[in-house]
Amino acid sequence: MLQSLIFDMDGTLFQTDKILELSLDDTFNHLRTLNHLRTLNQWDASTPIDKYREIMGVPLPKVWEALLPTHSYEIRKYTDDYFLKSLVENIRKGKGALYPNVKEVFSYLKENNCSIYIASNGLKEYLQAIVDHYDLNNWVTETFSIQQIQTLDKGELVKTIIKKYDIKYAAVVGDRLSDINAAKDNGLMAVGCNFDFAQADELAQADVVIDDLMELKRIVSNINNSLSV
Rank of each mutant, 00 (worst) to 15 (best):
C193V: 12
S115W: 03
I130F: 01
I162T: 09
Q150V: 13
L67S: 04
R76T: 02
K77Q: 14
V191L: 11
G57V: 00
S107R: 14
R176G: 01
K95C: 08
A66R: 11
P69W: 07
Y165M: 10
F144I: 08
A182Y: 01
I149P: 06
G192P: 04
K159R: 11
G122E: 00
K95S: 15
V105E: 06
I75Y: 15
I91H: 04
A97T: 10
Y78T: 10
A119F: 05
P59M: 04
P61H: 08
D153Q: 15
V131R: 05
F144A: 07
H71V: 10
V140M: 05
A119M: 09
S86I: 08
T70E: 13
W139A: 03
Q147A: 13
A97Q: 11
Y134A: 07
I149N: 08
L109W: 03
A183C: 10
G192H: 04
T160A: 10
Y126N: 12
D135G: 14
P61G: 11
K184M: 06
K168P: 06
D135L: 11
L152P: 00
T70A: 11
I75A: 03
V191Y: 01
K93V: 06
A119E: 08
T160P: 01
I167S: 05
M56P: 00
G187H: 02
N112S: 09
N101S: 09
Y117F: 13
K95A: 12
D185S: 13
T79H: 00
I130D: 00
H133W: 06
A171N: 08
G122I: 03
F106T: 01
G192A: 07
I91W: 06
L157C: 14
V105L: 09
Y108L: 10
G174S: 01
E156K: 12
S107C: 12
Q148T: 11
P59V: 05
D132N: 12
K124Y: 13
L87V: 10
V173D: 01
I167V: 15
N186V: 05
A190R: 09
L123W: 05
Y169R: 12
V88F: 05
F83P: 00
V172T: 15
V172M: 15
M189R: 12
A170Q: 03
K103W: 09
I146F: 07
N90G: 08
I75K: 03
L123S: 03
Q128R: 15
D185C: 11
L152M: 12
T160F: 09
R176M: 05
V88W: 02
